[in-house]
Amino acid sequence: MATTSERTGNDAALIRPQDGTRSFWTRLTANPAYQRASDLLLSSDRRRFWLLAVPALIWMFGTHLGPILTMIRISFLDSYPPSAGRVPDVTLENYLLFFQAPNYITPFVRTFVYSTCYTLLTLSLMYPIAYFLAKKLRPSRQMLFLLLLLVPFWVGEIVRTYAIMILLGNRGFLNIVLMGLGLTSRPIPFMYTGFSLGMGLVYLTSLYMLLPLYASLEKIPRNYLEAAADLGAGSWTRFRRVTLPLSKDGIASGCVLVFLISTGYYATPVLLGGPSTTVFAETIAGFFHVAGDKWPEGAAFSTIMLLASLVTVGLFLRLLGRRSGSLLG
């Protein structure tokens, strides 16, 4: 944005300031049409509020809530997309289907068990790292060490999943190293198992655990720990009685984020998992890729998964004694 002085300074040879040239803002605000619009729309606080509120609310309720509500509505229909001349009936059939076959319930339960395990695994791996960054490093080095962790996460889901495949394949790096060391004579089948899937999910989601943990640990003033030490608390007691309770918010946010994100992956389970690790995302996706009219079933299953994940998160937050609603705040 060119300022007045810069303009008068730089363009002095071209435009004589005495010419009465006026700046963009002067011309805009002196324009009668602009003045009328400004008077009409901006002059009162109330009008300004509604001017901002109406488009924002339409966007938020229309596009943030709209798809979810549409999905729930369709989950109660017996057919969708609608065929010509036929009004779909309302039914509970799609929800009942879920409880009728074990090949639906199994991936569902597996998804939640896996996601919970991976979340706890990520927590136990990332807590020491967040603690190391926030409490053991000089502030000047914290950013550098954090940045180093950040870089791999700028690369997308698919590329990083593929990188894990190279690491874990039968002729992958890990097997070559193990065989080279003589620890195994034949390649260990890491791929297409819960192990490879877990390895991939931790690889993909650990940042979402790290950042909230780091933020909450970094906020704990050093003199709290010094005061505790002064009062005779050993390092374990200091950690358990001071650091851990004060980082509870970070633990909660991190776990919720990782849990929700890991239940939502589709490509990673497809690429890293096998038939024994099919997750619910794959089951749902199946309804949308087969030919024919399976959308209502897919919508019902998505609704079940959404509800189940939100309930899990709600229970978890209650367990930690934390009010919900401040998840991202």
Binding site: I68, W295, A299, L327, L328
Partner: peptide, 25 residues
């Protein structure tokens, strides 16, 4: 608070569900 929650909603919905609900929408 409700409007704020609605604003944050797309960021916390599991990816596959967000995509599928958009597909239907």
């Amino acid at each position: 608070a409700l409007v704020f929650a609605v604003m944050c909603l797309p960021a916390v919905i599991p990816g596959v569900i967000s995509a599928i609900s958009m597909r239907i929408f």
